[in-house]
Each structure stands twice: as structure tokens, then as C-alpha cells.
Amino acid sequence: MFHIEVISSDDASFECPPEKSLLHGMESQSVKAINVGCRGGGCGFCKIRILEGEFEAKKMSIKFVTKEAQAAGFALSCRVFPRSNMRVMAVGND
């Protein structure tokens, strides 16, 4: 279980096991720090910037996170699986 710290308009934190995406882990604990959209990597609603921590990511829509943005640490939290404690910033789909 990893500790996930979210910087957003409502800072929050939650615990997330490695088999759950950050968004799924957050929803499981009824925390509302990241916007919940499709939960499938398609809509961009749950976009975050990863500030610290190790993770694995599943494929996500390049319409909302280009390959360059992914390289810069942006990701859709529904596709990110933690491999250490993490610190992320909620940025939404703008």
C-alpha cells in the first residue's frame, strides 16, 4: 500500500495498492481530489502531473496527454499504478 499525496484546490491524500490505479484508489476511499471522468484513459478529466514517485502506466489517449507531455510527467491518473509513495498535482483536462 502506497501513500499518495494530491496537490489540488482541496489537498488530500489516500492509500493506494499497486494493483489499483491512482484514481481507483482515490475513489475507493471516497476522496475527491482529482476529477473522475471515464476511468479508461480516454477523456482527460483526471489529468495529473507527477511530482515524485515511481509508477507504471497503461496506454492513455494522446488527445489529452501527448507523448511529450507524458515525458514531462503528465498522465491520466486512471492509468497510473503506484510503485512507491507518490506526490501528484491535479491539473484537469485543460
Binding site: G37, C38, R39, G40, G41, G42, C43, S61
Partner: peptide, 8 residues
């Protein structure tokens, strides 16, 4: 609901 790629 959504398909696994997020299409509604």
C-alpha cells in the same frame, strides 16, 4: 457507462 478506453 464507459468502455475500457473511456468511450461512453
Amino acid at each position: 457507462f464507459f468502455d475500457p478506453s473511456g468511450n461512453r
